[in-house]
Amino acid sequence: MSPDAEFRAANRVERHAVLGDLEPAPEVTLWFEGRAVKAREGEPILSALVAAGVGILRYTKKGSPRRMFCGIGRCTDCVMTVDGVPGVRTCVTAARDGMRIERQKGVGRWAEEDSRDGA
């Protein structure tokens, strides 16, 4: 999936025979890799990214891509760097307006380490 195609996908389940129409929710903006992604306030970061069509959430140390596996905070497949903190389980972390979300490689790096290193 090319980066441009990522944000065109609309994966929301708007209508549902049992659950009814998706209820409106306040919208917040996440910054994924520097690009705006709309989220429903309070939903997990993970579902907002998947709804926007983001296919890869992180890479392992060896460069293998990952997205999600258990979706409920058990497996760490979906961990990302959130506001400079690596290893955040995005499936159990609520989206808040203005959050900076980045893909990480391996276990990632703390933002402080970067500044200490003069990066």
Binding site: N11, R12, V13, E14, H16, L19, L22, E43, P44, S47, V50, A51, G55, I56, L57, S64, P65, R66, R67, M68, F69, C70, G71, I72
Partner: peptide, 23 residues
């Protein structure tokens, strides 16, 4: 099995029924 797109059934269920997102 580690490719994005392989997930537990419960993960897909959580996505569609709670977060209302198609995996």
């Amino acid at each position: 099995w580690t490719l994005p797109g392989v997930m537990t059934a419960g993960c897909a269920q959580t996505m569609i029924n709670v977060h209302r997102v198609l995996p």
